[in-house]
Design a binder for these strands. Structure first.
Lengths: 225, 225
DNA sequence: TATCTTTGCGTCAAATTAACACAAAGATTA
DNA sequence: TAATCTTTGTGTTAATTTGACGCAAAGATA
């Protein structure tokens, strides 16, 4: 058997659409490039795959070293292959998206290099490379996924209230959803559990605190909003 | 700017899950390997990416040269990255799935090398490499896709009857669907058009012939069976 | 104690779905 | 020619789900 790596191959990279949710805002983490190509433009964080790495390893490396994040929900999105997508030469990129609770990476955020920044998804600058298209695809996937898989918990604290979950869905799906119908559908799906505790401190009635049901039997559902 | 290809990169390949539907049978096209590794085992057709090619170009090349097929519905599935997935060395594979009407590639099928064969999806041999997993993922994707996108037409003739479409759905989804409810939902979705013609020759009542509505406004729907 | 806002729970009409009945069409046969 | 058999097209109905609300309880403040 002849080993492969004697042949010439395209470069292989991963790029990351890191979503964060905080204060009724869905944001994406962008990096300001300091070198050509696309110098001074905002781009998605990414890195080239090292010979021994899986995609997730490379993603974790980027999340850890560039952004100071650990243990992040990660999903492969799509591989981008346009021959001219990188002016430096042929490069394939396997896009992923990540869901992050910014509160949990607050320390990292504080120590983040000043060339890294959160942008509200409705106020994104034009991105370098083909990263606009990656972002669009990631957003579409997130919107679709959240209607059939309990993925929102990655963006919230371990304990959360019904109004918080409701606002998250409205924000991600960019619609209004009747509060009471939302409650009914979510509860019917059985993917959250009422802890019996209540969130104190608010001015009005204290809402119940829920947690994610990790023992959910069915691993998918279908909710139409 | 330093060009990339001076670095060492993993090999990059595409592999293809080619689905064909014929006589109430959903099948996959497999290739019998003539060389190590996995000599004499059945595997998915695939090829290494050439430096100038897009994934779809490589797929088309495989479909054309190995299988004699043109103009095939093709969709990127997932990229497989386990470091040991190929004993010859580090190789990434971007899996795709294709939908084919075997009747349209009949000539090709006749001239097909004898190491290529259709297998009913319920009677697959154990495949080489990580191709079992690729196949499973492709089947799952097809089953999901067919419930919200008119993808079945790629597997049927231009004109088809309601019972034919019904059988296709039952076969792919591996369930029974009430014939009359199926008809109503499909017609409500407006993605097929009654041509007014009828399929002659059958013993009993001649069913109407339908065609795909290419001017469909909404580009997706949701049908639960 | 009255008021204000938020949260939890319930109601009801409208829409959708699942299950099923029945008649029309076409070939075969008595 | 009429009876029979099977398949296909159409319609009906009850059950379920959904969307659009009403209302009271909880908690803070005036």
């Amino acid at each position: 058997m002849k080993p492969f790596h004697s042949y010439q191959n395209p470069s292989l990279a991963v790029d990351l659409v890191v979503f964060g949710y905080s204060k009724q805002n869905l944001s994406v983490l962008l990096l300001n490039r300091k070198e050509a190509p696309f110098k001074d433009r905002w781009v998605l964080p990414g890195a080239f795959l090292q010979m021994e790495e899986r995609f997730k390893d490379t993603c974790s490396r980027v999340l850890k070293t560039k952004l100071g994040m650990d243990d992040v929900y990660l999903e492969q999105l799509f591989s981008f292959d346009e021959p001219d997508r990188d002016p430096r030469g042929r490069a394939i990129s396997v896009a992923h998206y990540a869901l992050v609770n910014p509160a949990r990476v607050a320390i990292a955020a504080g120590s983040m290099a000043n060339d890294v920044s959160w942008f509200n998804i409705n106020e994104l600058p034009a991105l370098g490379f083909d990263h606009d298209s990656m972002f669009q695809q990631a957003l579409q996937r997130l919107r679709s996924k959240i209607t059939y898989f309990p993925v929102g918990f990655e963006l919230l604290d371990d304990l959360f209230t019904m109004p918080e979950l409701h606002e998250l869905y409205e924000c991600i799906l960019d619609t209004t959803i009747d509060r009471r119908n939302f409650r009914r559908k979510i509860l019917d799906s059985e993917y959250i559990i009422n802890t019996g505790k209540k969130r104190e401190g608010s001015q009005n009635r204290h809402p119940d605190l829920y947690k994610f049901n990790k023992k959910l039997k069915k691993n998918s559902f279908q909710i139409n909003f």
